[in-house]
Design a protein around this nucleic acid. Sequence first.
DNA 1: TTAATTATACTCAAATTGAGTATAATGGAG
DNA 2: CTCCATTATACTCAATTTGAGTATAATTAA
Lengths: 305, 305
Amino acid sequence: MAESAQTIHAELIAVLVAVTRGVPRVLTLADGSALPEGPLEPTHRSLQAGLRAWVERQTHHPLGYVEQLYTFADQARSAEARSEGRSISISYLGLTREAAPQGAISWQDWYRYFPWEDRRSETKREPTLLEAPIRDGLARWQGRDATRRMRVANAFGLDGVAWNEELVLARYQLLYEAGLVHEAARDGRAAHGALVSGTPMAADHRRILATAISRLRAKIKYRPVVFELLAESFSLLDLQRCVEALAGQRMHKSNFRRVMEAQNLLEETGKFTSGPGRPAKLFRFREAIRAERDITDTRLPMVRT
Amino acid sequence: MAESAQTIHAELIAVLVAVTRGVPRVLTLADGSALPEGPLEPTHRSLQAGLRAWVERQTHHPLGYVEQLYTFADQARSAEARSEGRSISISYLGLTREAAPQGAISWQDWYRYFPWEDRRSETKREPTLLEAPIRDGLARWQGRDATRRMRVANAFGLDGVAWNEELVLARYQLLYEAGLVHEAARDGRAAHGALVSGTPMAADHRRILATAISRLRAKIKYRPVVFELLAESFSLLDLQRCVEALAGQRMHKSNFRRVMEAQNLLEETGKFTSGPGRPAKLFRFREAIRAERDITDTRLPMVRT
DNA sequence: TTAATTATACTCAAATTGAGTATAATGGAG
DNA sequence: CTCCATTATACTCAATTTGAGTATAATTAA
């Protein structure tokens, strides 16, 4: 590569996730239309440190788990970027607990942006149906193209393929390519039908959010990170509801329990819940697990429908 | 985040991998002591496009699969960076086939940098032993610290924990923290014993390589990316050897075969190998799989020892 | 022709997974 | 106080997947 100096502007962009009463939420600006972002400051020792400091200043809440998502640098990303030189955006996923939002910041149900990703209401006799704009729009877009047909079938679980909850980004990407989401129309793509439901976001923020959800859905299956989203002590059902909220799928209760017990991640607090029904044991995550969270494996049993 | 303009320099850094005759290789500069890197040029439309163009110009070989690894921006990353403003490095993993290197470029066996990661010679009666500097150095470093002991046991498969081939980065990181690799000494860390064997690299290149290996070892289990490393047609044993080279572990032959056949990723070419022993059927990856490579799942059976 | 070598086809037991039933312990309605 | 709705927890069982190994087939080289 030839040597070439150029001014580059670097931004951090954060997807902060919390789960409150069964709803997975994401921190947003401007009435839910954008993710929080800001320039990388010279005082920051590292990217991660910069993000942590900034988030904690904004939300007054500690940031548990942080993971880098993706770095974007497309030249056409925004008009200003083009005129004043390249801009690099480094996106992060952060897990936290919901705190009272300040100013223009608000927590939004992430399924507001991806209604088709929430399949928790599915039952055996009533399999989830994709809404008409998705079905028809994709059908029109794929036409007789074998590769497109296969991409659609795999991403959306059609033609005998099972639904894979991790393919959030692949699904959004397809809807974008088919011109079925608002952002595609905004970016001047030909539409193949009516727009699907789901709130759009500024720039490529909805794509970044899709990336974050994909990553998190994959992560919870093999790394114990959920506890960053839960209270200090919780029942097994609390834990299951939290995982289901993230995965967008219901799980089999006794099997979930069996797996969690086999993994030895939890310890009993000795206390119990109260409320309707038999009281449930309260658990906490073992201290060693918190320290070891990058190494230990976790698994989750899904329900196959 | 407060507004603050500053000059930032962005670099791309590539981990290019090929597998030749059972040896996983990585493209290096300067006699194997550094990974190829170069500044991001203004002409590049996107990061990925920039990397592709640059690599193909250097190696005269098409770059099959490309995946972003990680973006680093630690201020202390190098002395020049500190003096002339912040530098951001965006690292990539690329899969290709080995071509004749030009100039200062050379292909190196990646186990040269991580000898402890190659366990292919292990047999049931002769489990792999960690070399003395690793065992003793880590033992000295962990002392009686419970968290350290657990990290070591999990990462290196001690105390009844199984070896997990994906933890390449965690292992390198531990050796670095314990002051047992050359880079740690260079960065002024206290040593806890003799240095372990394995060639050091410039700056944090060995860490980046460890990240790449971790990612690739995880990836081959659920995404059909290996074919980017293989010739157009290959026998099942070729495929198995390639996967084993990456994973650093031997696999069970008939089970490997069973899994590969069940996944329907391959199709017979109708041709056969010649050479010693019974001729093997030659396969190729199904065309649809190449198109679908980001979506379909793959699984691999390992040998448990 | 035989031995060495590699491929391929089966078999079998152990472990894991998906799904469901039975029983226990609460609070609230009557 | 009793019954019922509700939730927790403990088991059971079959299907599938996985780990490991054996038997047989088709080559080349000696």
